[in-house]
């Protein structure tokens, strides 16, 4: 059985897995970017109430393998709470939490480290708070944040395959199933690798393009 035959025979199953992977990714991306950015901005404004605790959670999550966290959310936590949650929701929730705190860390750091002097210069130039935010802070912060943000999204996209370990029928699990039937690991895992490359490489290139286009070298002579 070659690539073409595998695609023809198991294409629907693979597409189903692909759809689950993309659905999972979009949920994780959207929640991470929206909630993570908001949490990061709040953390920079309210350092003691929000920033500190958020940083502590980030450090704990960074120190725990994503798979361990996923298993912990799926087995002990649900056992302790005596609830059963759909594995897809558990996977989406777990990866979203990871993404939210990684993004929050990135955003909080960028805002906290933003050179106040640029704001001072804008203030004494008579610019309003809203203009300073829109025309000075946002453009400079975006340039700093976006490339890192995209790299985080690529990482969490690759993490979605962990969801297969708690029985989420995403593309990796479907590939494993197909392989258990026809045993063509080279073809199947090559197809899988090509899929991830097809998504991640353009994203990586986009991040690189953004860095080149917008994140000029600001260092001064």
């Amino acid at each position: 059985m070659n690539f073409l035959q595998i695609t023809q025979q198991y294409g629907d199953a693979m597409l189903g897995g692909l759809f689950v992977t993309l659905k999972l990714s979009f949920i994780v991306w959207a929640s991470g970017i929206v909630i993570g950015s908001a949490l990061g901005a709040l953390g920079a404004s309210f350092r003691e109430i929000v920033g500190g605790p958020s940083k502590v959670v980030s450090v704990i999550l960074a120190g725990m393998p994503a798979l361990v966290f996923l298993f912990w959310m799926h087995y002990p936590l649900q056992g302790y709470l005596q609830i059963v949650i759909n594995p897809f929701i558990t996977g989406a929730l777990t990866l979203s939490i990871i993404n939210i705190f990684m993004v929050a860390d990135l955003v909080r750091g960028a805002i906290t480290d933003f050179p106040r002097q640029y704001i001072d210069a804008a203030k004494v130039s008579g610019m309003s708070h809203s203009d300073i935010f829109v025309r000075i802070q946002v453009p400079l912060l975006m340039r700093q944040i976006i490339p890192g943000l995209l790299l985080i999204q690529i990482t969490v996209f690759q993490m979605t395959i962990f969801a297969s370990m708690i029985s989420v029928d995403e593309i990796f699990r479907v590939a494993q199933r197909v392989n258990s039937i026809i045993y063509k690991p080279v073809e199947i895992y090559t197809l899988l690798a090509l899929f991830f490359i097809a998504v991640c490489v353009p994203l990586n290139l986009f991040a690189h393009w953004l860095r080149v286009r917008f994140t000029r070298d600001y260092s001064e002579r």
């Binding site: 002097q117 001072d120 210069a121 400079l140 340039r143 000029r216 600001y218």
Partner: peptide, 11 residues
């Protein structure tokens, strides 16, 4: 004010 470190907006 013109600051010693200038603080021209780099973008």
């Amino acid at each position: 004010v013109v600051f010693q470190q200038l603080f021209l907006w780099p973008h």
